[in-house]
Design a protein around this nucleic acid. Structure first.
Length: 121
DNA sequence: GCAATGACGCTCT
DNA sequence: CAGAGCGCCATTG
């Protein structure tokens, strides 16, 4: 496994349950700005025993970005819904509500009312 | 080592 | 808001 993958996995593992992040954001947090595509590439080569919450990574539109033929898109959606993530009719989630923010960026860090129940991890 | 690929993002229309 | 086009870069064959 390359160091690039290790960095990516480390960041994805930090995403708490009930929240999601974007490929571009994960790339930046992993110290790989501009390498959003490589995030997907790394997650594709991921194994189940690696214990990485890959389902919490979506594209910048808040949409599942997996190919249909693999059948993983429905799996990801089911797992996210199980964490309390809500999808609209277009199969998209509201990044405004569910995106993960690593550090407090400002005074307002409003506690998002997670449908799942508890608002903290 | 070169050319093609891909679980993406941003800008313009 | 939605779709099309172009840029991006590590990994693969």
């Amino acid at each position: 496994m390359s160091d690039t993958y290790s960095r990516i996995y480390a960041v994805v593992r930090r995403i708490p349950r009930g929240r999601v992040s974007t490929y571009g954001e994960v790339a930046r947090l992993a110290g790989l700005p501009g390498c959003a595509r490589q995030i997907g590439y790394a997650l594709h080569a991921l194994a189940d025993e690696d214990n990485v919450p890959w389902q919490r990574v979506v594209n910048a539109r808040g949409e599942i970005s997996l190919p249909r033929d693999a059948g993983l898109d429905s799996l990801q959606r089911q797992m996210l819904e199980g964490e309390g993530i809500e999808f609209d009719a277009r199969g998209r989630l509201d990044l405004k509500r569910f995106v993960w923010r690593p550090r407090r960026t400002g005074p307002i860090q409003a506690r998002l009312p997670l449908p799942g129940g508890r608002g903290s991890d």
